[in-house]
């Protein structure tokens, strides 16, 4: 508990540092905000197509499909806010040797390297769009407002973030072995976009691959599936177990990677 409080306090300090730096470079904040909004706009085209064609897949109407897309945007907002820049910086710090300073810090190295750079400009458009879409879908579909459903949805979102963290951390960690791993990072981060649509649109083999082998569908397909009552007991348990297993796996790889690190400054 003491450790958790300490790390939460540190996250508060990282956020404070971010706000202070953004007050200094306000243009940068608004530039990122505009760029992120344009990226969002290009992703919203998928939703526009779904509505225009009145697409129904596996009994899911356009409103239900936006529940999936909205959840994807919310999780993207959390990832973009807390982890995205850290993962990019991690690769660079291995490449330019600046990891040396981070190693000397008296806190968990994985926590410091993957959480220390917070950004608030990236998540704003994604979060707003996601929240609006989810709220609208919830209302239109007249989904249950019972606390169990809402808490369950939030719980699976947290697990989804944990899953995304564990999957997307692996490519930057490869930089400890290969120094340059941007190509692989691009490919793996592209995987998360599969969640823009319900997994029902993909063929069976892809669904199995995305649920059990690289469980990318757990990220933002499982929370809406839970709300819609489409997760059986086995899947509910897998949705809890897989993020924990993958997180522990990522932790082991992280420790191995650090052992591999040789500073270029020496």
């Amino acid at each position: 508990m003491k450790e958790l409080t300490k790390h939460l306090r540190l996250m508060g300090l990282f956020t404070k540092r971010y706000i202070m730096s953004q007050m200094e470079y306000r243009t940068s904040f608004f530039t990122i905000l505009i760029v992120e909004s344009l990226i969002l706009l290009s992703k919203l085209l998928y939703t526009a197509v779904v509505y225009n064609t009145d697409m129904v897949v596996d009994g899911l109407k356009p409103e239900a499909i936006t529940l999936f897309t909205g959840t994807f945007f919310i999780i993207s907002a959390v990832y973009g806010s807390i982890f995205m820049f850290n993962f990019t910086n991690l690769q660079n710090s291995v490449y330019d040797g600046s990891l040396d300073i981070a190693i000397t810090k008296p806190i968990s190295l994985q926590f410091y390297l993957t959480v220390s750079t917070i950004d608030l400009a990236v998540p704003i458009p994604n979060f707003i769009a996601g929240a609006v879409m989810v709220t609208n879908a919830w209302k239109t579909l007249e989904l249950s407002m019972e606390p169990v459903v809402i808490i369950g949805y939030v719980f699976y979102i947290i697990l989804g973030v944990l899953m995304l963290y564990s999957i997307l951390l692996l490519p930057p960690l490869l930089s400890f072995w290969f120094v340059k791993s941007e190509g692989i990072s691009h490919i793996v981060s592209g995987l998360s976009n599969f969640n823009m649509m319900p997994m029902a649109i993909y063929p069976k083999a892809l669904k199995i691959f995305g649920t059990f082998i690289i469980p990318i569908f757990i990220v933002s397909n499982f929370p809406p599936l839970f709300v819609l009552g489409r997760l059986n007991v086995g899947m509910k348990l897998w949705g809890i177990l897989a993020p924990i297993v993958f997180f522990l796996g990522a932790r082991i790889v992280f420790k191995k990677a650090i052992q591999k690190y040789s500073s270029i400054a020496n």
């Binding site: 998928y46 197509v49 779904v50 064609t53 009145d54 697409m55 129904v56 897949v57 190509g183 692989i184 691009h186 490919i187 592209g190 995987l191 976009n193 599969f194 823009m196 649509m197 649109i201 993909y202 063929p203 892809l206």
Partner: peptide, 28 residues
């Protein structure tokens, strides 16, 4: 080789859109 990686990264939106269109046409 870098360009081959770049091309490979285009496969994901391609796959997503292909199945999206298949679903749309099946439904339409």
């Amino acid at each position: 080789l870098n360009f081959i990686f770049v091309l490979f990264s285009a496969f994901f939106p391609m796959i997503i859109q292909t199945f999206l269109w298949i679903a749309i046409f099946e439904n339409s």
